[in-house]
Write a protein that binds this DNA or RNA. Structure first.
Lengths: 141, 141
DNA sequence: AAGGCTATGCTTATCGGTGAATATTTTCAT
DNA sequence: ATGAAAATATTCACCGATAAGCATAGCCTT
C-alpha cells in the first residue's frame, strides 16, 4: 500500500529517487500522469489499467475532456538500477517542480509535488485540526 | 484490547519497545499515523483497512484532500524480532519525542507521547475528577 | 570528423535502518 | 523471599537508501 510522505531532491538531470518502500508496489515500470492540483501522479501498471477502465466507461462531453487530459498527459517511466526515474521536462514544468520535491503515497497512487506547493496545499483551512477530528469521527477512527 | 500506560525509552536509533501486552493486538506490522494532540497513533492492520475503505469511498472536492492528508500522514511499521519499532525521524519530530516516551492504550489504537507532553496533558484541568464527572453526566454515563 | 549535448550509469559519502549481543529490570511461580 | 523467565535498555557492527558528482557512450550538429 502506498502511504507516507518523503522529501527527496531532483538531481541536476531531473531524476529523483523513488522511496524504497514504494518500489515493490509500483513495479519496475509505471505510468506517470498529470495529476489534479499541480502534482504528478504515478500508477502501477495494474492501477493504471483500472483507472483507464473507469475513464472509458464514462459518457458525455466531460468524459471526452477527461480522457484527453489523462491519456495525453501520461507516459511510461522506468525505474533505473539505482531506484531513480527521470521526470521528463514537460512534467517537471507542469507540476512546477524545483529541486526539492515531496513524494506522497495516496493508497492507490504515488504523487510527486514541489515541496513549497505541497506545504501550501497542506496548510488549507479545511485541514484544521477541528475539521480533521470531524472527518475522523465520520469515518470511524 | 489496548489499555494501559507504559513508560519506555527510545534508543539512539529512534527505536522503542512496544509493550509486550500490545503486540498480539497490533500484530507484526501496524500503521503509525500523526495523532491529533502532538502524539502518534498506531492502528492494527485491520483497523486501518476499514478506515481506508471508508476514506476511499468518500466523494467530492474535500475527499481528495482528506485522502492526501491521512494517507500521507501514515506509515507502515514492522515490529522486529526484539519487539521494537523504528519511529521515523519525521514522526519523532512531529510528536516532539525525546528519549523518554509514554505508550498508552486507547482501546482501538495505541498512542505514543513524549513523556513531558503526556504529563502536561494529563495535568490539564479538564481532567480533574469533577470535570470528568461533569463530562460523564453530559454524555449520560 | 570534431565538438558538444544528452541520457545513462558508476562512485563515493553520509545517514538512517537492521540485527545481534549483552546487560538490566521486572514479573511470576515456587 | 528466591530463582527462572520474560521484558526492556543499551551498545556495536553492518547493510541499504539517498544525494551528489563524475564518467562514459551514443547522437546530433556543424
Amino acid at each position: 500500500m502506498l502511504i507516507g510522505e518523503y522529501f527527496h531532491n531532483l538531481d541536476t538531470k531531473g531524476r529523483v529517487s523513488i522511496p524504497s518502500k514504494f518500489r515493490d508496489d509500483l513495479g519496475g515500470t509505471f505510468v506517470l500522469s498529470k495529476g489534479v492540483n499541480d502534482c504528478l501522479c504515478a500508477y502501477s501498471k495494474e492501477e493504471w489499467e483500472s483507472f483507464k477502465e473507469e475513464l472509458l466507461q464514462l459518457r458525455g462531453a466531460d468524459a471526452r475532456m477527461l480522457r484527453r487530459f489523462f491519456f495525453s498527459g501520461a507516459t511510461e517511466c522506468e525505474i533505473d538500477t539505482q531506484g531513480r526515474v527521470v521526470i521528463p521536462p514537460l512534467y517537471r514544468e507542469y507540476a512546477g517542480l524545483g529541486r526539492e520535491v515531496v513524494i506522497v503515497g495516496v493508497s492507490n497512487c504515488m504523487e510527486i509535488w514541489d515541496k513549497a506547493a505541497w506545504n501550501k496545499y497542506m496548510n488549507n483551512p479545511a485541514l484544521e485540526s477541528a475539521e480533521i477530528e470531524n472527518a475522523m469521527e465520520r469515518l470511524g477512527l
